[in-house]
Design a protein around this nucleic acid. Structure first.
Lengths: 219, 219
DNA sequence: GTGTTAATTTCGGTA
DNA sequence: TACCGAAGTTAACAC
């Protein structure tokens, strides 16, 4: 990795055009040739960048970074304030422990959250257009398809709608009704769901988790 | 901005938990206290990070970055290989050109691109399921809903379809027809749109922009 | 500030 | 390899 602090202006010409006026910035050049232009604020996203695979050509005062699609990042350098190289090697990588997958497992384990007499058919119930998060049957034996999201937005309702259309063509399952379950449901998503006869369920993650955690039990 | 190259392990505890084993990495500390952990590959996204506003506390061999929500980034440092500070000042910021918002403004300003006698009702016309990009009326006074995309794909047609269904329930607007406008329309999107009676319009960005630019005019 | 959509999205999974 | 969905998404913009 090469770290350069420089007064520079930057132009990107590719899927869009973008320009950065002359100012001091960090130029991070990674081993794969990719380049990140960072300022001293903002979030983790660089002001401008070129993703690998790409190639960096250095001329006097002008860096040209080009990728396969012909997109270019042009960095005009007026003054170099710092320049250093460092060998980092290949990173062993990140280990994550997610939330949404966990919600699905927890709700499947406590399917009665949906109502008295509910029984789990299966998680990740396969269909031609992708797996349904949870398939269950209610107390009367009617089929219920459940879509789970961390945050419930319109996309999720659309997704569930597609599954319902497909599942309802199966005479062994039909009629299938839908439940849209999320930790938080946006008003517009709720409007669309209600309009389509889909029930909404707000999930309490801590409560669901608490049911699994013996230390949380009172008795 | 402070740049540190160090052998470190990193733990994030917040919306999820994540762990990075001991390895040499770049630690970027920005002026606002935010911290980015970068490896020598991948894309512009750091392996791990803490967004501002947050606070960095340094102890011997342990950095603790905490934000308002109580989420923490714990960086255990075994060996520091490089450590430097640089004053960058406030960045003048990025100027973008050619994004969807720009297309929307340009098309609204030149609504007659859609045809003789078209009049703009408004941009970002609000509905219960989100704003319609442009609402207009044609020469006969009939309502037209326009969805604008940079690249026109199936999702955009679905989005417009939802709006049309909703708008057509309003007796003051109905019947409402749809126009799917984009710089580039994928064949599958065009097929679906046509099938649903939605017109497609390929936008010439340079032409639309040229109409705004007096230097582009012939007379 | 809230809420919604776009993004040079990136990233990870599966078919 | 391509498509699909999630992301500690982040960023821009309207109300």
């Amino acid at each position: 990795m090469r770290l350069v602090i420089a007064r520079c202006s930057v132009d990107y010409v590719g899927r869009l055009t973008a320009h950065l006026p002359m100012a001091p910035r960090l130029l991070m050049v990674k081993n794969d040739g990719s380049v990140l232009v960072h300022s001293d604020g903002g979030s983790y996203k660089p002001l401008n960048w070129m993703s690998p695979p790409c190639r960096l050509e250095e001329a006097a005062g002008l860096w040209t970074v080009t990728n396969k699609a012909g997109e270019q990042l042009l960095i005009t350098i007026e003054e170099i304030l710092h320049d250093s190289r460092h060998e980092l090697g290949v990173d062993p990588g990140l280990v994550k422990d997610g939330v949404e997958a966990h919600l699905q497992v927890l709700l499947a384990a406590h399917i009665q959250t949906l109502g008295e007499g509910f029984r789990l058919v299966r998680r990740e119930y396969p269909t031609a257009i992708g797996p349904v998060d949870i398939l269950a049957r209610d107390a009367s034996g009617a089929t219920v398809a459940i879509e789970i999201k961390r945050r419930g937005e319109i996309d999720g309702v659309e997704q569930l709608t597609r599954y319902l259309q497909l599942l309802n063509r199966d005479p062994l399952l039909s009629p299938v009704r839908g439940v849209f379950a999320a930790q938080e449901i946006k008003p517009q998503a709720r409007t669309l769901a209600t309009d389509r006869g889909i029930d909404c369920l707000v999930l309490d993650y801590d409560l669901l988790r608490g049911k699994d955690d013996p230390s949380q039990r009172l008795f």
